[in-house]
Design a protein around this nucleic acid. Structure first.
Lengths: 264, 264
DNA sequence: AGCGATTTGTACGTATGTATG
DNA sequence: CCATACATACGTACAAATCGC
């Protein structure tokens, strides 16, 4: 809970004349995002009602409603008729830098995945990744085992330059399990990802990879590569996924991840 | 251009009492999607202004605006301040309805491909495609053999509703060889494609497909599916590619940036 | 360059409907 | 049945971008 003063302070900037020229509903949207990001309301907490927001801010109902609808569209807030507005429990914006989701039987939802970090090491030699990180000095490779619905296991190899994602590259392995991995990427990414490329190949799986994904060396599996770029050429991260033969369909994301707000 | 009667007929259903219980802005959104899908307005055409829509429909300005904003969010419509609202034209996306290109050794250019139409037939039963074309009456399947750099052959199965691509569905086979195929799609498409999904699976190739791509039945190959949508739900075409095991990498086209999103 | 006319964009206040507890 | 709170909808007003004269 919060006092009236807390809220007054939160929304104080909205009363100042606007220098940025942004519409009111955008300013309110961002104010709420900031407050949630700062932990003023945590996942599951109830936000003020529409009426309260009309009181707390210098804005009218339509503006408040539009800001709230934006937050719903962004997956940050859930609204329940007759009950209230709540901070979403799962931050949907974090859903994407996965690139490795499999379609469930309904063809629409995705199978649950659990990832476990296997190793992290410096990359020394050359390989397919080399062309993506021309000039990078401290390349790091993080291997993860991704358990898909307890049906099979995917080996994910994540490559990045330690200088662009330092906290990720330096983190202890235990801190990167499960959701923490993608959470950290999203949080650390302070550059917009403007392009992502995917390619796919059927490949005879080599010895070390076969062991992780539970197939015999030499068996055919799918190898997918995904590279995320800022601008045209500079690669932010690059991943290789080794996927055993399965009747599940690998879904390839149809748009780049949304790395934050568009307008401030 | 259209007469007043055309429009009156278009929006007539909106005056009838609502049986579905859907909100007005949803009904109007769907009415506009249907009209665009039916070719009433083609890509690049100017839609009626907000005021005209208020006159043409039994709805108020806020409702009209919300429906239009929905269409913008779906990528189906582009609005330009002071000018009007237009059916989106996304030529970029249409530049490559191929979805099946393989990387050359340099990792950047693509291997040359030559396609040859094998057959065209009505689709009768049900299959994976059924979920994409709910309610379509005249489904057509066009099979093509795509020769990739004289190294291997891909079988491409193209599905569409004959009512959305009539000239393609009715064309003689000889006219669809080579580039003509994609040219015709681009020329005939009078609706913007706003979303493309891809998925990929390693699969044991069945008898008829194996014959075309030159492998033994039961061998493992890659099957890629690509579906192109107008708006959120209505599928324009759907393709299946049967790819033999190869050391070439299948490149999955990255999506063009979102035209004009209003989420903010 | 200016000036309307057109058209979208934002915003308000109000009213009413509907799901929840 | 009632209070709460979200959801939809209307009418109006004004701001801002664009075009043609």
């Amino acid at each position: 809970m919060h006092t009236a003063e807390d809220h007054a302070k939160l929304f104080m900037p909205l009363s100042r004349p606007d220098r940025s020229g942004a519409p009111k509903y955008v300013r309110l949207t961002n104010a709420l995002i900031d407050a949630i990001g700062a932990g003023h309301w945590k996942a599951g907490d109830k936000l003020p009602t529409e009426e309260e927001l009309v009181e707390l801010t210098p804005y009218g109902l339509a503006t408040v409603q539009r800001a709230l609808r934006n937050l719903v569209d962004q997956g940050l807030v859930v609204r329940q008729h007759g009950m209230g507005s709540f901070v979403a429990r799962n931050d949907l914006r974090l859903e994407d830098p996965w690139h490795c989701r499999f379609l469930a039987d309904d063809g629409e939802t995705f199978l649950p995945v659990f990832s476990k970090v296997l190793s992290k090491e410096a990359v020394l030699g050359r390989g397919e990744w080399s062309s993506y990180f021309a000039g990078a000095k401290h390349l790091v490779r993080i291997d993860r085992a991704i358990n898909v619905n307890d049906e099979f296991t995917v080996l994910a190899r994540f490559f990045c330059d330690a200088s662009t994602l330092p906290q990720l590259a330096d983190a202890p392995l235990q801190e990167l399990n499960g959701l923490n991995f993608k959470t950290r990427i999203v949080r650390e990414l302070h550059v917009p990802i403007t392009r992502i490329t995917h390619d796919v190949r059927a490949e005879c799986v080599g010895e070390p990879e076969a062991h992780v994904i539970g197939v015999m060396p030499g068996e055919v599996g799918i190898v997918m590569r995904a590279a995320a770029f800022m601008g045209e050429a500079s690669c932010i991260y690059y991943q290789e996924f080794f996927i055993p033969t399965t009747n599940r369909r690998l879904s390839i994301p149809d748009q780049p991840p949304n790395t934050g707000r568009n307008i401030r």
